[in-house]
Structures are given as C-alpha cells and as structure tokens.
C-alpha cells in the first residue's frame, strides 16, 4: 500500500499566448502513495485549478513531469477520475442520473451491458441515491448532483480521484455529510484522493497529508502529515488538539501569504 501512484516532479505551467504569458505554477513537487488522501490548500488565486488540470492530463505542463502509475501523463490516463466543483454543469442534463453514471464506464471493456448496469446500480446505492436512478440531475438537490458526479468518477474504476473543490457549492450541513461519504467511498473502493479546497477545516479533516501552496507562481510551501486517528468523526476529530493546532498552523501560513504585498 505504499507505492507511489501519482508523482509530481518540478512541474511549471504558464497560461496565455507568448507575448503575455502569465506564469501560474512556478515549481510544484509532491507524491501521492496508494491510499493517501491529500488536501491541497493555498491562498485565493494560487493556481490550484491549473495544477489540477495538469495532474488530470487536461493541460500539458511546460516543464517537469507528472507521472501516474509510473507513466508520464500527457493525456487523461485510465484509472484517474475528476470530480469538478460545478456539478450542475459537469453532469449531462439530457441523461438520467443512472445514465450519467453509465457514461463513466467508457473504458470498461470486460463487462457486458448487464454487468455495467449492475455496477452502476451498486454505485448509486453506495453514494446514497437509491430511488433516484431515473431522475434527471436537474431534478435533485446540489448535494445529490455531486453524489452522481462522484459515482460517475468511480464508475470508471478509478484508482485516483481528483477532487476540485467538490463541496464548495453545497450548504454546510450537506458538506459535513458529503465529507464523511467521500472518506467512506475512498476506503470502500480503494481510492487515492487529491482534494483541492479553499476550506482549511475540510482540508485537515479529510486528509492524511496537507500540501500548502504559495501565491502565483505557485510553489509548495510545506507538506504536512496529518496524524489524526481514523475513522474521522465530525465531532471528535474536530475537537482533537492535533486537529486544532494543524488548523491554526495552516491558516496562519495562508494568512501570512495573503498579508504580503499582493499582485492579485
């Protein structure tokens, strides 16, 4: 369980066309081992989304290399799924929830249609959406839509889930529920997770490691292990002294970067 699944080695990325390129990622390195849950946090506009696009193979890096399962990533690799923040746009509104999950099984060749439907039905139960299979995404709440998107990611038999602020748009109560659901799903389906988030509490609560990024051009400020007992609990974990001191440390770091003379 300790082999490196995702390794990010000194990657750099600028956006925009040549005369006015803006350096977004200066130099970022970290590695995710199988079973890791890594939270990535940083000040606003620190290029978190660009970083995630590079990890997913949706953007080509200018320098350095992203390896998934040892192989360099230049196209979205098999075994890696992304859950985007904007669930209402990422789901296909002309497909039912169930068909959206089936849509995730494009690369699955060793199942016939019946097996795929059974697998989709199982995933719908796992994300707590039994009974909503034939509903359309726009007929269910935001939290439920994000559950469909997570199920669709898992349907691809992913090993690595890239989570791009997946809970930023849901209400606080739903968020807590969804955090526990994500942790449970990650354990049940052996997912390694990389979570990009604005929410430091969420970052500490979910992760076994936190990568703190700097402002643009982004570098890794610190890579901190989270020594909190599992399974996490919304009350106990959040009252744990380790949790509180980590939270304090990360928020202080981010605040100090924000206070520095900002270009943004």
């Amino acid at each position: 369980m300790n082999d490196v699944l995702l390794s990010v080695e000194n990657i750099a990325k600028s956006l925009g066309s040549p005369p006015q390129t803006i350096p977004i990622i200066g130099s970022v390195s970290f590695a995710a081992h199988s079973g890791d849950f890594i939270s990535i946090v940083g000040p606003s506009g620190c290029g978190k989304t660009t970083l995630l696009m590079c990890l997913a193979g949706l953007l080509k890096v200018d320098a350095g290399v992203v390896r998934f399962d040892g192989k360099p990533v230049d196209e979205p690799p098999e075994g890696l799924s992304v859950v985007f923040q904007d669930y209402s746009r990422s789901l296909l509104p002309w497909k039912s929830n169930f068909d959206n999950v089936l849509f995730g099984m494009k690369r699955i060749n060793d199942m016939d249609q019946a097996a795929k439907r059974a697998w989709a039905a199982e995933l719908m139960v796992s994300v707590g959406l039994k009974g909503f299979e034939s509903h359309y995404p726009w007929q269910v709440s935001g939290g439920m839509q994000q559950r469909v998107a997570i199920a669709r990611g898992l349907a691809a038999r992913s090993r690595l889930l890239l989570l791009d602020e997946p809970l930023a748009a849901v209400d606080a109560q739903t968020r807590a529920e969804m955090q526990d659901l994500l942790l449970e799903l990650a354990r049940k389906y052996n997912q390694t997770c990389v979570l990009v988030t604005h929410d430091v509490d969420e970052a500490v609560y979910m992760a076994n490691r936190i990568v703190v990024l700097s402002k643009r051009p982004t570098t890794v400020v610190v890579d901190i292990p989270v020594e909190l007992p599992k399974p996490r609990d919304q009350l106990k974990t959040r009252e744990d002294p380790t949790y509180l001191s980590l939270r304090h440390e990360v928020i202080t770091l981010i605040r100090s970067m924000r206070a520095a003379p900002a270009s943004a």
């Binding site: 997913a56 949706l58 990422s90």
Partner: peptide, 9 residues
C-alpha cells in the same frame, strides 16, 4: 462537459 468526457476516455 468536455473535460469530463476527455478524462473518461
């Protein structure tokens, strides 16, 4: 939606 389709293969 295009990103989703691309990452799914």
């Amino acid at each position: 939606q295009i990103y989703v389709a691309r990452t799914l293969g």
